[in-house]
Design a protein around this nucleic acid. Structure first.
Lengths: 152, 152
DNA sequence: AGCGCAGTTGCAAACGATTTGCAATCAACC
DNA sequence: GGTTGATTGCAAATCGTTTGCAACTGCGCT
């Protein structure tokens, strides 16, 4: 996996603000959880559990703990889970308040990830829902292609 | 998993036509492969490997063989692989010639699947590709919601 | 500053989907 | 019908993830 060189427009969220969101849901701020949030704060891509694990100072916590934490963070709306081509789930910090719905453009070669503003047109989604009698319709959408670096 | 009652507009592909596509790529027509194609022919939804396996007359072939066959059929363009919410890959027969690109609307409750005609607007996809300097961009898109049956 | 306990953790074992090594078997061409 | 490389069955391995359980620890209460 090549290093990625694209620019990030995120403003990084502060750790206290993040732990506050946990605390507000009467969840404990533990070492592993703080470490995970720290890592996510410094990596503006979706990270796999394994990647988070290996970023952690010398196996500071158990893999199982990370899996459990990711479920908790997802449930409390602090991170969002994504699936790309391989089997592993990836996680990204969510800004507070936003529903976090967005999509990615992923390089099939080097796995560089660009967060996108574009989304599937709501009118068409509604039409699809109505035509088939479905309710509460959402979608999963990811784009794949060759990034500038990998096109040669 | 409830039985699904929606109407299918597919015209079913003939088995000889399917095996012919295999033969053309100098692949052998074996018992397991013919059985898999037969099962896919009669089930117009995306099926998991397990589902194909259990449709098979009294464990006629090994699970590993089905996995291997699905890779072969995918590589030769006879089936297409889909991923829905759960971990398991699903497979659907592709019509010869068509690139088979299409999407589904999946009930989150009963897993009913509707094949969709709608697709992500090509102009927007091109704009995304150009804006980020990516080439050969495609997308994965699936819709999820509550089907009419499950809305109560 | 200390207590108590529900919430958390580590560890190891269990899991489900999928892959693989290997020796036996078979489809397709001669 | 025989040859042979492709294909299969079987069992063991792998990968991502989950779980049972006993030990441990935030943090609200005193």
């Amino acid at each position: 996996m090549k290093p990625c060189a694209h620019k990030h427009t995120h403003q990084r969220q502060e750790l206290p603000a993040l732990t506050e969101r946990l605390r507000r849901q009467s969840r404990k701020i533990t070492g592993p959880r703080a470490a995970i949030l720290e890592i996510l704060r410094h990596h503006p891509h979706p990270l796999t559990t394994k990647e988070i694990f290996s970023e952690m100072p010398k196996g500071e916590c158990d893999l199982a703990t990370i899996y459990r934490s990711m479920h908790l963070l997802e449930k409390t709306g602090i991170v969002k889970r994504f699936h790309f081509h391989d089997g592993a789930a990836r996680f990204e910090l969510m800004e507070e308040g936003s529903d976090g719905h967005h999509h990615h453009l992923v390089c099939t070669e080097c796995a560089e990830v660009v967060k996108l503003e574009e989304c599937f047109p709501a009118e068409i989604e509604q039409k699809i829902a109505k035509k088939n009698g479905f309710k509460a319709v959402t979608h999963k959408l990811e784009f794949f292609g060759l990034c500038p670096e990998c096109q040669r």
